[in-house]
Design a protein around this nucleic acid. Structure first.
Lengths: 122, 122
DNA sequence: CCTCGGTATCGACGACAATCGATGTCTCCG
DNA sequence: CGGAGACATCGATTGTCGTCGATACCGAGG
């Protein structure tokens, strides 16, 4: 059964995975060393995918800015394992937070690492 | 022969390849449609690579903010064909501009599309 | 308990990308 | 006009990534 958006379950603590927020100078300010470049590239790879971009956009477009997997497979046109895979990538990059509520896993966009990424492209 | 940075050649016109500046709403403002997501992802893929990030960083770190290939292969530790390949990717993404001066091809970072990308991650 | 539904993981497959050596192209210069 | 040097392109190889079906896990409810 798909949860309706009007369901109100008590909210547990939102666990957050380590943020891949590369602590390196902005791209054009100083020459990037090899390690910083790889970290920044890894963070960018996490969002350099159409499905994952649409995931972030879709989650944020929901009321309460959160969604569970079953709400995302159909508008994306991707299978459930594929959606789960992309959410895992975003989770490990620290770009979404996951919260289990009953049988459902709710995902929410983390805006801070996104802002950090933005500032590194200066 | 490698050109010295003190050489001053008259500057031709900098030809600019089409900018992949996706004209779509910021990521978290409205749900991205499929085409916008693919365009934005393509632009992000162009910089989601350690070698290309270091290329941009290295070029910008030169005096006059420009560099030719022979100045970039050694600090990157990559072969000349590989550096040329990455520069082509950046060129097609509109993130660098290429200018031929004599035997040498000078590359320069285009900051506008970078800024555009930044604003799309809001 | 036992089943059911939501989600994650696994294994496989096809597509794409990064890299390099070899080679082609163009420009300068003698 | 012929050689040398800078850069681009080609072809091949190798690794990575997106995708899916099958299956395992896990909480909820009867």
């Amino acid at each position: 059964m798909m949860p309706t958006t009007s369901i109100s379950v008590n909210m547990g603590s939102v666990q957050r995975i380590a943020t891949i927020a590369p602590s390196c100078p902005p791209l054009l300010q100083a020459p990037l060393d090899v390690d910083d470049a790889e970290q920044l590239a890894a963070a960018l790879k996490a969002i350099a995918d159409p499905a994952r971009l649409r995931l972030l956009s879709l989650i944020q477009a929901q009321q309460d800015h959160e969604a569970c997997v079953c709400h995302l497979t159909e508008p994306l046109g991707l299978s459930q394992p594929t959606v789960s895979h992309h959410l895992k990538v975003l989770l490990q990059a620290g770009l979404v937070a996951r919260e289990q509520r009953g049988s459902w896993a709710y995902f929410r966009v983390c805006e801070e690492p996104l802002a950090a990424l933005r500032s590194l492209l200066a």
